[in-house]
């Protein structure tokens, strides 16, 4: 009995309550179920990283590109290019799926922070460079989000605090 109790305590201490709560707040799975197009706009690496419920498919980086700053339509076929502080990027080309999602499998890129990102269309048309570097957080939607921004904030306050979602178009 004592052993069982000790095991339970150990198991409980292994989980990360902050992460668990953030995952719970993501809500239900999308209708299509897990796959490249599920849960667009959400913080991908919450689950797809060591210790997460999708740790069997870990990502080096991931996110979602939309067609407009505030709409829900994903931008498909956009190439997402990365370059990190060591001058490297993913081994394989990264292109958004029909939902606008993109992801870099962990095995494709050993990231040396910080890194930069640019969105390209066609062969080499740069449609949206990122001004800032990414210094720590490889889940792009962690910063680029609209869904959990408090609606009580004024437009100016939103602009001041948040980048908004990633979209494949000129700044507005």
């Amino acid at each position: 009995m004592r052993r069982l109790f000790a095991l339970l305590v150990l198991a409980a201490s292994c989980s990360d309550p902050v992460r668990d709560q953030r995952i719970a707040e993501l809500g239900d799975e999308t209708a299509t179920g897990p796959g490249p197009d599920h849960r667009p706009g959400q913080d991908c690496l919450l689950c797809h990283s060591p210790g997460g419920p999708a740790s069997d498919t870990p990502f080096a980086a991931a996110g979602t590109v939309y067609t407009t700053p505030t709409g829900d339509d994903g931008a498909s076929g956009i190439e997402v290019r990365f370059i990190d502080a060591a001058g490297r990027g993913p081994v394989d080309k990264v292109v958004t799926t029909k939902s606008g999602n993109f992801y870099v499998p962990a095995g494709s890129w050993k990231v040396t922070f910080p890194f930069r990102v640019g969105l390209y269309k066609g062969k080499d048309e740069l449609v949206a460079p990122m001004i800032s570097t990414v210094n720590r957080e490889a889940s792009c939607n962690y910063c680029h989000r609209n869904d959990d921004v408090p609606s009580s904030l004024s437009k100016e306050e939103r602009t001041r605090r948040f980048y908004g979602q990633i979209y494949a178009g000129a700044p507005q």
Binding site: I131, S132, T133, V134, N135, R136, Y142, C143, R161
Partner: peptide, 18 residues
């Protein structure tokens, strides 16, 4: 950067273009 000290939740806030 916004994923580090460029956010309101951090004790040491840093403001910038980035």
């Amino acid at each position: 950067s916004m994923d580090c000290h460029g956010q309101v939740g951090r004790p040491l806030r840093i403001y910038s273009q980035r």
